[in-house]
Every structure is written in C-alpha cells, then in structure tokens.
Write a protein that binds this DNA or RNA. Structure first.
Length: 279
DNA sequence: TCCAAAGAGAACTTTACGTCA
DNA sequence: CATGACGTAAAGTTCTCTTTG
C-alpha cells in the first residue's frame, strides 16, 4: 500500500501537527501539504485558526515522538475503564493530556490492536498446552491398548492349549472364584475380563471365528439393552479403581468408553479401541 | 563507541458498517 | 425507502525512535 504522506526537505523527519479538534494538518518543518490534507479532512478548521493555535510553534518543530509516561499512564487507565472511546471522552482526554483528539483516537486504535494480539497469543498458548496434554494422553492410551491386546491374545492361546472340558457357567452354574475361564457347550472358549470392577461384573469376549460380541458385564456405561446395537467398543483401564471422578490430570475418564454407532465406530477404531460388530 | 537489525509505537490507508439528515 | 455525509472500528502498512547484540 502506497502511503500518501508527503515529506519535504532533505531531512524530513521533523513533523508537526496543525489544527483543532479531530482534524489537523500534518507537515514538516519545511512545508506542509495543505491541499492534499484538506481533501481528506473536510472538517478542517481554517488556516488562521490553526496559526492561532497556542501550540503552533511547539508543534512546528516537534518531531514524531513517543507519548510521555504520564500520558501513557492516563491513557492506559482510561483504556482499562473502557476500550472504546466516545467522542466526549476523547475530547476530554485530549484536553487533559495536551494531545490532539486524533492522537487519542489513534492511540486507542493501536492499543486495541495490541490488546487483541496479546489475547490471541495467550489463547494460542492455552490451546497449545491443552493439545499437548491430550496428545500425551492419547499416546498413553494407544500403548496401553496394545499391551492389553497382547495380554489377551497370550491368555487366549494358553487357554486353547489347555483344552479345558466343558464347564457349565454359561448355563447359569457359575460359582464365585471361577471367573477366568469358561467354555460353552459348543466348545467355544471364553475369556472373562479381569478389569471390570465389582464382583458381579465381568465382560466376556467370544473367541469364535465370526464377529465378536462383547457381553455386558453389568457395570457398563450402556443402558441394559444397549449392547444389542451393531457396534460396541470398549476401553479398559486397570491402572486404579475409578470412582468416576476426574482427577484433573487429563480429560479422559478412567474406564470404559463405548460407542454404539457407525460413525463412532471409525473413531473408536482410530483410537485403537477394540471394536466388535454385532452379527 | 559505532552500527545494523529488531522491536515498539505513532500515525497512516483502506474497507466496512452504522447512524443520521 | 434511497442516498450521501460522517464517524469509527479493524486490519494492515509505513515511518520513526529505541533497544540490543
């Protein structure tokens, strides 16, 4: 963007302002661009008015310079009260600070821009740290899942090798203390999960070749009939007993997540959860 | 001490929008 | 209701001054 500001003289850093109210002429110690500026600032006071300005001499030689600490302090205080500037407040502040109202307006504009930048930076930092925590949690979960999968596979193999005879637990003859190995009348070996809490609860993983079914253990997040849905996924955490409360370390509950629809099936799969599809 | 680069701040331009006569 | 003038916010830029290595 090409600036329309004009500078005169060989060393044109000596700027000055002329005018009252919100509008002013801007020029240098060697000249100013009346015609151009007046086109853009239609409410300019007359040249005579400007020349009568008590600060004229001062402004004539004044370079563009920073506001004094006291001026900035008062502007900051005003900004804290309200970051929008009504015309009355602008005029009042300008008078108090010995500045042009235009300068006050510009200061507020720039201050709002700085505030926005800072806010965005803070927001970014907050989101970034949240993201990092979630990423770390995600990695732990994936690793844990892999470990548990391997463990189950290994146990399944052992059970197969054992060739356990028929045990009629599935038929309702289950006894406390024998909750690890079961086989149904068709010879399918089942492994009960050891991670569920409560004596009455356990999930059973069917080992046959067809689609696997997760049988509700009694303390699932699902309503009683929910496991009849097409997809069921579960994440099991054995790290500690969970009372259902969040410990504040992360945003994941400590035990079974579940999903029951197609959409979440993919998500669960991506997370490395076990997903069983109902036949 | 000098100097170039970077940073900070003041002022600017452009665009968009709301208000009002 | 349409229109033009006006004020202002926001975003981006330019220029100047200060700080820093």
């Amino acid at each position: 963007m090409e600036s329309s500001r004009l500078f005169f003289g060989s060393n044109s850093s000596s700027m000055f302002y002329l005018g009252n109210g919100d509008d002013y002429f801007r020029g240098t110690s060697t000249g100013f661009n009346f015609e151009e500026t007046s086109k853009k600032r239609p409410f300019m006071s007359s040249l005579d008015d400007m020349l009568e300005d008590e600060n004229y001499d001062e402004q004539l030689t004044e370079k563009k310079r920073r506001l004094s600490p006291e001026q900035v302090r008062m502007l900051e205080r005003s900004f804290e009260e309200d970051n929008k500037l009504e015309p009355e407040r602008k005029t009042e502040l300008a008078k108090k600070l010995g500045l042009q109202p235009r300068q006050v307006a510009v200061w507020f504009q720039n201050r709002r821009a700085r505030w926005k930048t800072k806010t965005l930076e803070r927001d970014y930092d907050r989101l970034k740290s949240s993201y990092d925590v979630l990423t770390s949690d995600f990695d732990s979960i994936v690793k844990e899942n892999e470990k548990l999968k391997a463990e189950v596979l290994s146990l399944t193999e052992k059970l197969r090798a054992k060739e356990v005879p028929e045990i009629s637990i599935i038929g309702g003859d289950h006894k406390e203390g024998r909750d690890d190995v079961v086989a149904d009348p068709s010879g399918h070996v089942k492994v009960e999960d050891h991670f569920s809490t409560g004596s009455g609860g356990s999930a059973v993983v069917d080992d046959h070749d067809g689609p696997q079914v997760l049988v509700d253990s009694g303390d699932s997040y699902f309503p009683d009939d929910d496991y009849t849905n097409e997809y069921v996924a579960v994440r099991v955490d054995q790290s500690e007993e969970d009372d259902g409360s969040d410990n504040g370390q992360n945003d994941f509950p400590n035990y079974p997540f579940a999903t029951t629809d197609h959409h979440h099936h993919d998500e669960a799969d991506a997370l490395g959860w076990w997903v069983w599809s109902q036949p």
